[in-house]
Design a protein around this nucleic acid. Sequence first.
RNA 1: GGCCCCGUCGUCUAGCGGUCAGGAUCCAUGGUUUUCAUCCAUGUCACAGGAGUUCAAUUCUCCUCGGGGUCACCA
Length: 462
Amino acid sequence: MVVTRFAPSPTGYLHIGGLRTALFSYLWAKKNNGMFLLRIEDTDKARNSQAATDAILQAFKWLGLEHDGEIIYQSQRDEIYASYIQQLLDEGKAYKCYMSKEELSELRETQMANNERTKYNGKYRDFEGTPPDGLEAVIRIKAPLSGEIIVKDGVKGNVSFQAEDILDDFVIARADGSPTYNFVVAIDDHLMGINQVIRGDDHLSNTPKQIIVYEALGFDIPSFYHVPMIHNSEGKKLSKRDGATDVMQYKEMGYTPEALLNFLVRLGWSYGDQEIFSIDEMKELFNPKDINKSASIYNTEKLDWLSSHYIKNFSNTKLAELLTDYDLILTSHDKKEILLDALKERAKTLKELAELIKEVLATPTSYDESAVKKAFKADSIDVLNAFKEKVSASSEFHLPSDYHHLMEEVANEMEIGFGKIGNPLRVALLGKMSGPGLDSVMAILGKSETLLRITNAITAHS
RNA sequence: GGCCCCGUCGUCUAGCGGUCAGGAUCCAUGGUUUUCAUCCAUGUCACAGGAGUUCAAUUCUCCUCGGGGUCACCA
């Protein structure tokens, strides 16, 4: 069974890059009827917060990414890590190192001065004397000093590292006894049964260290897929200044989970020429072997396009429901269908759609100057009056086509083109030149509001 | 700096020795529309550079250049 995981460290919000690796992991598990586990890497007590964990969970919930099983918190697993540290100590695969921080940094400085690679010098690797007084030991693992370590990566291929280039006896437990990242990752992934690791390629150079831990403990090494980073428009690492970092901000901006997930799945991954993927299609088609090798640049043009695509194709019922999050209650509006049909093709986001709707529903309090200039000709007031007569003489209409007929009648009777009536009427009803079809607008507004707006315009422009 | 990864239209990408280098987005133009938007059609735009290998390189190899990542008692 395929078991994947997402393992964020709760130092901040869930951002777009983290979300994408989470999505990939989730999809790959689902595709294989496997499990997608969640582990919170909160061993650094100083930098972690419960709020950040909650934010991540909240984002997952919004997007419908459900994890399987219980959430694992590393902060609650100290005894587990301690027992493995003891095991390595007992087996002679790890040892206590009494080098002080001062001595260590001195060592580094001389190495840097000599233009050498900074590495621990193995001073206590085979130490057997009496430990120095007053120093708490760290635990270091005995790493191979030479040889080749190959990371078999499903995205990058086989990546080989020379032990002497990258390894030294790295610390697996700090002076206070707490374990370090590369150590606990290997243990937790093993204990959780994770066999497919999909993560950012910033972890690629850590992987050899983790392999050393796997081997020291006799664990099976999982399959790795290191997915390339998402960069900002300058080609640099994504930062807070590159728009919304927190995934939940995308909700505030009016994007739907469908659009955001579709956008992200196509960033670094593709399936032929297909652009639109439902969640079910993603689960069916995603395969990490098709992940691109190169970094991609974050750019919202396509997100906007996808967003408008989904909004156009959502049912009015679903839209009305979604819109409640954007301060717009439409559920009881009797012209909901006409309203949404008329406006959903005009918005890139739900937020925009809500604003567009509110605009149509609000009686104009002013008229766009250039629109008035363009629309109001010498006979416009007469035309509006004629149309107004028609409307008030009619019974309450409900269909756009009814209003359309009325407009046609006026145009025919006065022997004028459609534009002669459409333009001033548009300004009267909406206050500007652009907007949805007037017949729909009038059907939405109803007889009395339509008459009110026409009367207002006649008064203002006579 | 050492080590590692990467390099096809502005952007997201297809390509896996022989293609008019394809799609999408963006942009532009035209059509539809009483307006705007939608929609449809058309168009502009790319293999970082240089050596090899080969009958043939975007594709394989090497070098250069460019970009990124990583080198902790952070994760």
